[in-house]
Amino acid sequence: MNITLNGKLIHTECSSIYELKKSLSIENDNIVIINGFQTNQDYILSKNDSIVIIKKGVMPSKDEFESMISARHTPQVYNKLKQSKVAIAGLGGLGSNIAIMLARTGVGHLLLVDFDIVEPSNLNRQHYFVRHLSMPKTSALEQQIKDINPFITIDTKTVYIDESNIKALFSEYEIVCEAFDNPISKAALVNTILTELPSIKIVAASGMAGYDSSNSIKTEKKMKNFYICGDFKNGAKIGNGLMSPRVQICAGHQANMIVRLLLGIEEV
């Protein structure tokens, strides 16, 4: 039968995983992932199964590496996400964490847009490290994503986004993620996308400051093509700071909604 082993289509006479491992002289302490599920148990092979075997501590060849990165995904999901394009507007607490999540999920093409550099006050919630201080957020994030999944195409634009450049920046993308801090900029991006780029879906955020209940943050579909995540009330203001847990919860809502949309699911 034909199966996929570490990303390559092969023919095998083996009927089980244990037989396959034996035929390849693979030790028992290696990692075996069958159709997205890691297990030590034996398993009867069926045709078209996707098997990934990772030798711990051994750097794989470039070809095998991509299949290993995606081995824990639900089968077929990775290929679909790999062909997808997402633009992220704003690379702060939301955008930097969303970009990392989408990269780990294998979204094949990301556009990262932010005008700013990394500051010490970003480190309480944004996905940057001390070594990134003073670097443009676009470059700092591009560097990290290349270290996570080198097979992703990354475009960066270090510009301030306003009504004058939204169309030029985003018209080629199927999904735009609104990840700004400033509510006026949030509204401007959402309004411009919905009125001038009607084929694009936008996933925005409003309300994630403080340490209110995690469960007050949710995803809602508000209009055709418009999704919004947050608690819709807790804004950042004097006396109410932005803290990593709720910012990341909200970022997770946005990233998961984006993945769902890329996989053709429009319900929240």
Partner: peptide
């Protein structure tokens, strides 16, 4: 937004208003 002042709303209308608060 440029049309807000030209639109007269009526009793049969359905309006959805989404407001943004700061933070991200």
């Amino acid at each position: 937004k440029s049309k807000f002042k030209d639109i007269i709303i009526q009793d049969c209308d359905s309006l959805e208003i989404v407001t943004f608060v700061g933070g991200g």
